[in-house]
């Protein structure tokens, strides 16, 4: 459904069009790096940076780009911001850069970013594009936070590296392994669909 106000532009990213739970975009980083909360936060922020700036830039130059080469141009713009984020993390947050490994460069092919460029930034004003990107980023970060919190607490017994469950707790190793990501995401997806269905009935 088309949004009209700035508030709607922002809020739709949180729930109605949440990139993870509703659009199911950007599954690769979502599944791969949510084994610890800190990784989820770092990936969320890096993606947010790329999404916001590439949406802004693409919206600004949309009139100059011929339709036939738009995807190539978007990818170059996105790749530029991703490389900046990657270098920045490597220079100032080496441990995070190390634990995210190849997934920072892979933001280039994160469908959320190209999806928003194509579906929103290339058709709307720079201001609205930035608000849309902020909303989508917030929705993405929120989803990564929920997913990584569940996985870190159950899989390692810690939260942000601090032990919160006592020695009695035997970590469920599967939760920090790839199957844990699929199981958790599946359950969260089911919950969000159930909530949506309840809302529809009302």
């Amino acid at each position: 459904m088309p949004s009209r106000t700035a508030g709607q532009d922002f809020l739709k990213g949180l729930w109605q069009e949440n990139p993870i739970f509703r659009q199911m975009l950007g599954m690769c980083p979502t599944l791969a790096i949510t084994n610890a909360v800190i990784n989820g936060i770092a990936m969320g922020l890096a993606t947010a940076f790329v999404l916001i700036f590439s949406s802004l830039l693409i919206s600004l130059i949309k009139k100059v780009i011929p339709n036939q080469v738009r995807i190539a141009c978007y990818i170059v713009v996105i790749a530029t911001f991703v490389t900046i984020a990657d270098r920045f993390l490597a220079a100032f947050f080496p441990p995070i850069s190390k634990s995210l490994g190849p997934f920072v460069p892979l933001i280039v092919v994160n469908c959320i970013i190209l999806g928003r460029a194509e579906a929103f930034a290339s058709k709307n004003s720079p201001g609205r594009s930035v608000i849309d990107a902020l909303g989508m980023s917030a929705g993405f970060i929120m989803a990564l936070l929920i997913l990584s919190s569940i996985r870190e607490v159950l899989g390692s017994g810690t939260f942000l590296g601090y032990r919160i469950l006592g020695d009695w707790f035997e970590p469920w190793v599967i939760m920090v392994l790839p199957p844990g990501a699929f199981i958790t995401l599946g359950i969260l997806m089911a919950i969000s669909l159930q909530i949506e269905r309840k809302k529809g009935e009302r």
Binding site: V64, Q68, V76
Partner: peptide
Amino acid sequence: RMVVVLTAVGLLSGGFL
């Protein structure tokens, strides 16, 4: 126009990076 735009985008991005 396609050539000019793609070249410009590529050059700007390359210089920036």
